[in-house]
Simulated scan of single mutants.
Amino acid sequence: MWGLTTFVPVFSAFVWLAMLITMLAVWSSEGSPHYSSMDPKQTIAYISDIGAQGLKPLFIAMSTVTVVTFDIAFILERWLRHTGRLTPNTSIWQKIYSGLSIVAAIVGAAGLILLSIFDALRHNRLHNIFLGVFIAGYIVSAIFICWEYQRLGIHFREHSVLRYSFWIKLSFILIEVALAIAFGVTQKTDRYNVAAVLEWVIAFVFFFYVLSFFIDFMPAASSKHHYSNESKMNMATSEPNGDAAHDGARYFRGAAATEAGTANGYTNGNVNGNGMHPGYPAPNANMTKPTEPVPASRNF
């Protein structure tokens, strides 16, 4: 069952990709027409220009499916981490970051759905507002989930998937912020063809971001056991915010020293009251070998 969750972000990503390719193909097959929502000097159509014409039902439907399934992936990730199918959170702050990333993703999803409904031809001002909400929502969401993964990576250094996912999401933030700024500048300076190209690039980068969540779900698909309650309890930390690395020595019964600072010398951790392994008498003051009892005679 949990293996199927891996394909939720994959499904979401490829629905988005299929929509973009379909819109480009239709516009090209029609001879790259100049739509009424385009500027007179503009020759490259925005996604929203194509989506405001005959492909508006496709634009609304596939945009909605994309962001709804993508937000489901966020919620599933939170649930799998809560139940131990993914590396569990080690502090309340990590859970807060995760929750904020979900809220921001929902806001971004609402922005995309609304911009597809309020198209650039009939509701240009609202369309641009919701476009900003869509981009900002998912950038903020990526920031919080990136923050969560950075903290998880400190505690679980052996899980390289956390490190890879962190860098992928950080790259998405940096690239999309740079592209969004460039898009806004070219819009303001009436360089509409450049702005249109940047909008398509932003959309394709978003495809790779959604697809990157596939690697986040891989440990849940491959794991057979939950993290034990003992492991979760041993994640108690010494920092005030509960976000420090845990003490790995607690997980081994045969450690050289117990938390009280006394060695037991045996891997099974069992000692008797005098600190020696059961079955051996305490040494005498001169540390001489004790006299062994004479065995009873077998002659009857």
Rank of each mutant, 00 (worst) to 15 (best):
P293N: 07
P283L: 01
T186V: 01
I202E: 12
P283Y: 03
A105D: 03
N89T: 14
A180D: 12
I47D: 06
S32V: 03
I92V: 12
E77K: 10
Y227C: 01
M19D: 02
L198V: 12
S160A: 11
N264Q: 14
M23V: 00
G132P: 06
I75A: 14
W167I: 05
A244R: 11
I50E: 01
E176H: 09
I60W: 06
A136M: 12
G108C: 01
W2F: 10
I106F: 09
R125L: 08
A109G: 15
T6R: 12
V177E: 13
Y35N: 09
G265C: 02
P33W: 02
A180I: 05
I47P: 03
S48C: 03
V271Q: 13
I135V: 15
M287G: 15
P283A: 01
D39G: 04
G51M: 03
E30S: 07
V194L: 08
T237M: 05
V194F: 08
P33I: 00
G153E: 13
R122Y: 10
A45T: 03
D216M: 03
W27H: 04
M276A: 10
S36C: 05
C146M: 11
F166Y: 15
R191A: 07
N268K: 07
V177M: 12
M276W: 13
A249Q: 14
A104E: 10
R163D: 11
S238N: 10
L86M: 07
Y227M: 02
D243R: 07
I21Y: 00
L131H: 11
N286R: 14
S37H: 06
Y97Q: 05
G84Y: 07
V10K: 07
H82N: 13
G84W: 02
Y227W: 12
V177L: 09
T291R: 08
A104T: 04
A203I: 00
V65A: 15
I47R: 05
K188R: 13
A256D: 15
F172C: 06
I21S: 00
E158K: 10
S297V: 09
F134K: 07
Q53T: 11
V26E: 01
G261H: 06
A18C: 03
S12F: 08
L112N: 11
N234T: 04
W147Q: 15
S160V: 09
R163P: 00
L58M: 15
K224L: 12
I113M: 10
Y149G: 05
S48Q: 06
G111C: 01
P88Q: 06
F166K: 14
R122D: 10
N274T: 13
